[in-house]
Nucleic acid binder design. Structure first.
Length: 822
RNA sequence: GCGGGCGUGGCGGAAUUGGCAGACGCGCUGGUUUUAGGUACCAGUUCUUCGGAGUGUGGGUUCGAGUCCCUCCGCCCGCACCA
């Protein structure tokens, strides 16, 4: 493709200029209004792929646009540089993860610099920077001190492939590891946890005031999983001093309880199991405990699977509603980690209980009257209560209230809110992460490393293998230390922190990366927070975005972030994915499309424009055979802009004719359109509007009538300014040619439309007969309803069709439309 | 199974408030310039029996529906024993 200018040299020239001039460096004492634009900091996986390009194109458009709108825009960059892939790659290559990671960082940096995305590089943050680690560890210790970090033995998700523990969030629905795809096992280990559950309610309710995609908010709400119910006792039949505590959200169905179930891990299971049933129960428990989450949670739809997965304990408990004894089962469909680990079972109103009851021959007693046409088994909807003693005739809401009162008096009942959300397991048995700053002393127990000894850094001479222990555990010099308390022999914690801890506060350090003696100075950061526009992938809808929200709330509460808002990201935009012929792209599939070849042909500007133009930013992009042609088309548009700016043979005249005025109006309408489109993230239509404007200007300027010089100059200037955030290099280049020695177009003010130019004297009015278009006529924009009707009826084509018939009705919507009904 | 989203030309998509469906681009067709190819430029491009018909299907509300309501079909995403 022959281009009218040298893309490579122009782009290189401006990239160097922006860096040297520090155009997009911004200081914390900047007097302008603040705007914080943030793209999720990337894991350094090597050169950029189209997903990165799309992300940074959107971010850079925002940065440059808001700068032209007169704001001080914070645009930082950094790297989520700890993580498993680097460690695995280093093991494979026999190198060190740091060397591997830093090489990848360099590649990604150069790749995005060539995109022309601009950042305040002075603020760069990366997770494995010892300074950053120091503050990450300080925060861990502050959490520990305030009770937000604790150590506990817990059944954990163990990935044999990654040889580490995973957070619940990292285990996929099918029970496999989101990273390696291995089947996740259950193990009991001593681990560090963060008490994110303390914030469950706030994390849920604050979602309402965030400008986030509804989809992401829904996913977080489901993940947190709040449910209101009652906890109460079911007394043992054979020993009234003991009771089984259960949780239910449907206390109103209490008269329908026909059995109870305990989880295989339940502490009272032994006491409930009779001698005759012991063998069966033990078999079930052994199976359940060793079974992976996968086996335990699949075949939920198959009644056949349920038979094997439950066993009668031999004991009975008393239903407090009707004093009847009901059998107690052990079954793995009840989870030991939720609620009380035991339930009352109501087959008539709960599908799972119904399926289990069918298989085990348990009875079903309806307590809610289903609608007449109800055909299924369990009915969990609204309805009048039946078979329910004092609740008969009540609706679900009032019956719940009555049942709760009843249980409070009769069965130690207490209203209770439970969450699906569990505490955040942060220990990782890996090397390439931030060490947990703890030592274990035989005499003093768990001892935090004193702040003046931070950061705890991992030694470099470590042999990395996959034994299931942190590689640090085999390094004697690191492992053996002295207790900071008593000076006696002690052992270091060898686990590292989940890398999601790093990404939970990096945006705070960006806002104040210079403070030497703390993680950040709250008063400095408060000037920028919350992030005005956060941009990233939908894959972080739960994990990162929930953890970061928790971190900020916790940091504020423990006094490390005084004066900061409790929510980090005010507005969130999640971009669509890039697919290749419909399938997901990934490094492992090797089907990533590198941007470099496009830098050579259409340039960074052409590629950026493509990503903006190809479709709505939130939609997925399917990279097909046609894509190359669309990218060429974007390059062609830029060529035409360049040529338009070069033209000096424009046929100019002094007076202002109707054509000139029409073009001016088009220019000002485009200002409104593009501004509005950018504000509502409709970049594809903004680009289309610029293409339209270019077509208008070039057609007009080469027409026989010619163009008024001033109008031509104004038109081209506006076009270049509106294009500047999208295609920054070419905009800067042509601006410099038009105004040598003047400040860059990127420092210009964003154009503002002249209201006078937006006013339209005449508009096209449509005349319909019975809803079908019959005529178009030019009318004054301020035509009255009466005049519009009159003009329509008098129109030749209309009166001809009406043939003197009096219309039954005339709908007049001046100045756009008149509809005549006959 | 539950929750959410989406179905518009050959293709990506536009139509922000119920009021000219198909902006803009790709592709395609024809033309001009050029020694030729390419480039650039110009014109055309939903279908049509030229009456009209037309936004996945069938219905409804309305003077008027791509847009609002209901039914069905198809696709995509999330959750999936959380009591």
């Amino acid at each position: 493709m022959a281009r009218p200018f040298d893309v490579k040299s122009i782009e290189a020239k401006w990239q160097a200029r922006w860096l040297e001039d520090g155009t997009y460096e911004v200081d914390n004492d900047d007097p302008r209004e603040r705007f914080y634009v943030l793209c999720m900091y990337p894991y350094p996986s090597g050169t950029a792929h189209q997903g990165h390009i799309r992300n940074y194109t959107f971010g850079d458009l925002m940065v440059r646009y808001q700068t032209m709108r007169g704001k001080a825009v914070l645009s930082p960059f950094g790297f989520d540089s700890f993580g498993l892939p680097a460690e695995n790659a280093a093991i494979k290559a026999g190198s060190h993860p740091r060397l591997f990671t830093e090489a990848r960082m360099k590649e990604l940096k150069s790749s995005i610099r060539r995109l022309g995305a601009v950042y305040d590089w002075r603020r760069e943050v990366y997770s494995h920077d010892p300074q950053y680690m120091r503050w990450a560890q300080t925060i861990f210790l502050a959490f520990l001190k305030s009770g937000l970090a604790y150590r506990a033995e817990a059944p954990v998700n163990w990935c044999p492939g990654c040889a580490t523990v995973l957070a619940n969030e990292q285990v996929l629905a099918d029970g496999t590891c989101e990273r390696s795809g291995d089947l996740v096992e259950r193990k009991n280990l001593e681990q560090w946890f963060f008490k994110i559950t303390d914030y469950a309610d706030e994390l849920l309710s604050d979602l309402d005031r965030l400008e986030w995609p509804e989809r992401v908010k829904t996913m977080q709400r489901n993940w947190i999983g709040r449910s209101e119910g009652v906890e109460f006792d079911l007394r043992f039949e054979h020993d009234s001093t003991q009771a089984l505590r259960v949780f239910t959200t449907r206390p109103d169905t209490g008269f329908g309880v026909t059995y109870a179930v305990v989880a295989p891990e339940h502490p009272l299971l032994g006491a409930l199991t009779t001698e005759e049933q012991r063998e069966q129960v033990t078999a079930l428990v052994e199976r359940a405990v060793s079974a992976s989450e996968l086996e335990r949670t699949t075949s939920s739809d198959a009644g056949a699977g349920l038979e094997k997965r439950g066993a009668f304990t031999g004991s009975y408990v008393i239903n407090p509603f009707n004093d009847q004894a009901v059998p107690v089962y052990v079954a793995d469909y009840v989870l030991g980690t939720y609620g009380t680990g035991a339930i009352m079972a109501v087959p008539a109103e709960d599908e799972r209980d119904y399926a289990f009851a069918m298989v085990h021959g348990l009875s079903v007693v309806r307590t809610t009257q289903p609608p007449a046409d109800f055909a299924g088994g369990a009915y969990s909807g609204e309805g009048e209560h039946i078979n329910s003693g004092f609740m008969d005739g009540m609706d679900v809401v009032s019956a719940k209230r009555a049942a709760t009162d009843f249980l409070a008096h009769q069965a130690n009942g207490v209203a209770k809110v439970n969450f699906r959300l569990r505490d955040w397991l942060v220990s990782r048995q890996r090397f390439w992460g931030c060490p947990i700053p703890i030592v274990y002393c035989e005499r003093c127990g768990i001892v935090p490393v004193p702040e003046d000894q931070l950061p705890v850094l991992a030694p470099d001479d470590v042999t990395m293998d996959q034994t299931g222990q942190s590689p640090l555990a085999t390094h004697q010099e690191f492992l053996n230390t002295t207790c900071p308390n008593c000076g006696g022999p002690a052992r270091r914690e060898t686990d590292t922190m989940d890398t999601f801890t790093d990404s939970s506060w990096y945006f705070l350090r960006y806002a104040d990366p210079f403070t030497p003696d703390k993680a950040f100075e709250p008063s400095e950061v408060a000037q920028w927070m919350p992030v005005d526009q956060y941009i990233g992938g939908i894959e972080h809808a739960i994990l990162h975005l929930l953890y970061a929200r928790f971190y900020l709330k916790a940091l504020v509460d423990i006094g490390l972030a005084d004066g900061l808002p409790r929510e980090p990201f005010h507005r969130l935009f999640t971009q669509g994915m890039i697919r290749l012929e419909g399938s997901k792209m990934s490094k492992s599939k090797g089907n990533l499309i590198a941007p470099e070849k496009y830098y050579e042909t259409v340039g960074a500007d052409g590629l950026r424009l493509f990503h903006l133009f190809v479709g709505p930013p939130a939609d997925d992009v399917d990279w097909t055979a046609q894509t190359e042609e669309v990218i060429e088309g974007c390059g062609r548009f830029l060529d035409r802009v360049f040529r338009l700016c070069q033209r000096d043979e424009v046929n100019v005249h002094d007076g202002l004719d109707a054509g000139d005025i029409a073009v001016r109006q088009a220019v000002h309408r485009t200002i409104v359109k593009v501004t509005d489109d950018i504000d509502r993230w409709s970049f594809n239509t903004a680009v289309a509007a610029l293409m339209e404007l270019l077509n208008t200007i070039s057609k007009w300027s080469r027409s026989g009538h010619g163009a008024n010089r001033a109008v031509f100059d104004e038109s081209v200037d506006v076009l270049v300014k509106l294009l500047a955030p999208m295609a920054p290099h070419i905009a800067a280049e042509v601006w410099e040619e038009r105004y040598p020695g003047q400040p860059s177009v990127h420092l210009e003010d964003w154009p503002v439309a002249d209201p006078e130019m937006l006013r339209q004297e005449h508009v096209t009015m449509i005349v319909q007969i019975n809803g079908k278009i019959r005529a178009r006529l030019e009318v004054p924009a301020d035509i009255t309803m009466k005049d519009a009707t009159l003009e329509a009826l008098e129109h030749a084509a209309i009166s001809a069709e009406l043939k003197g018939v009096t219309p039954a009705r005339v709908i007049s919507r001046p100045p756009r439309l008149v509809n005549i009904i006959i």
